[in-house]
Amino acid sequence: MKTPLSENDVRKLRAGEIVFLSGTLFTARDQATRRLLEKSNAIPKNAAVYHCGPLAKKKNKKWKLVSAGPTTSARMNALLPSLIKKCGVRAIIGKGGVDAKTKAAMRGKCVYLAAVGGVGALYAKQLRVRSVRWLELGEPEALWELDARSFGPLIVAIDARGKSLY
């Protein structure tokens, strides 16, 4: 599938399906998610947000990902309903799932894609760094804009109809 995803695209996905994503992704975990609620135009509408604090290396002024698997989505639970509403997020990629309030906020417009936890080296090979902002939050917490090429496998773990595998 290609990002940005439309509302229609995500409504078609069913819990249990396996997908590979290509196109732009934005990483945002604890600190970046908090900041996105104040600066919602920092990412475009219909974005795919990846719960990931990458391990990256800077060589000749260019960032390269070394290891970039998912982080626990539940830590961001309290912020996610507002994030979906304010930023129009279409897909959340992470691990471990989200709570009932977030699930309700996702209904009809957003899916949760489960990446395999700990698979950092392999996923990093499928992702390139396009830009990075908010590095003052620290490398793991910054807002990384990534170019994905067949990023996966990802599992539709909570679909837009509210069906969940957890």
């Binding site: 070394v66 290891s67 970039a68 395999v116 700990g118 698979v119 080296a121 496998p153």
Partner: peptide, 23 residues
Amino acid sequence: LQLKTILDNVALAKKEKLPICQD
């Protein structure tokens, strides 16, 4: 599928001396 992906990642990390997990 997930166990296979994990084992692929373990092999890749070992071969290329990459940290298995970003954390």
